[in-house]
């Protein structure tokens, strides 16, 4: 059975990383801390039942809570299918423009797709792990990722490589 010392250690070791992940989901540092605090509070209430690795449980609460808040509160930006044109040449200004465009496209992704992108490319989770966190099948994760990447306009070669990846 997991105890309080365990929980305190977990918060100390993992909360900074969780705040970063939460920030990438909601793009607001204040809300990110709020999200993590809520996720950890819910995890604490179920701590005795949490297994050896609390991460999947905590990440699941985090993404569920974010999706729920996003549907209720997120009114600031309207997703659009039309993204700004990306610059043609890879000069310095072009790179900044591309980053901004990518950032804007990331923000415009639906919460679920953004969650998949963040868990896959920031947390480096395999599709099966993401599926466990999000409570869906690995095939659903792959299709969500594929839609997200299409919206982000990733290099087709990179997309092909991603599709071919057989992440267990």
């Amino acid at each position: 059975m997991r105890d309080r010392a365990d929980f305190e250690r977990y918060v100390e070791q993992r909360s900074a990383r969780l705040v970063r992940t939460a920030y990438l989901l909601c793009r607001d540092w204040g809300q990110a801390e709020d999200l993590v605090q809520t996720a950890l509070a819910k995890a604490w209430l179920a701590w005795r039942r949490v297994g050896d690795n609390p991460d999947p449980y905590v990440y699941r609460i985090l993404t569920n809570t974010h999706a729920s808040w996003w549907r209720r509160r997120w009114r600031g930006e309207v997703p659009t299918g039309e993204l700004p044109e990306l610059p043609d040449q890879r000069d310095h200004e072009g790179e900044i423009g591309a980053r901004d465009a990518l950032r804007a496209a990331l923000i415009a992704l639906p919460a679920r797709q953004r969650g998949v992108v963040v868990l896959r490319y920031f947390e480096d989770m395999a599709d099966q792990e993401i599926a466990a966190v999000l409570g869906c099948s690995a095939a659903t994760v792959r299709s969500q990722a594929s839609r997200a990447l299409a919206k982000l306009r990733l290099d087709p070669q990179a997309q092909a490589a991603i599709r071919m990846e057989s992440r267990p």
Binding site: A16, V19, V36, L40, P87, E95, V117, Y121, F122, L152
Partner: peptide, 25 residues
């Protein structure tokens, strides 16, 4: 220009590395 998977990883790393992330108490 096109955006690669690596660009995406770097952007996520950079964006979340800029803030006052200090965890929670």
């Amino acid at each position: 220009m096109t955006i690669t998977e690596q660009d995406l990883r770097e952007l996520l790393e950079r964006d979340s590395g800029d803030g006052p992330y200090r965890g929670v108490a």
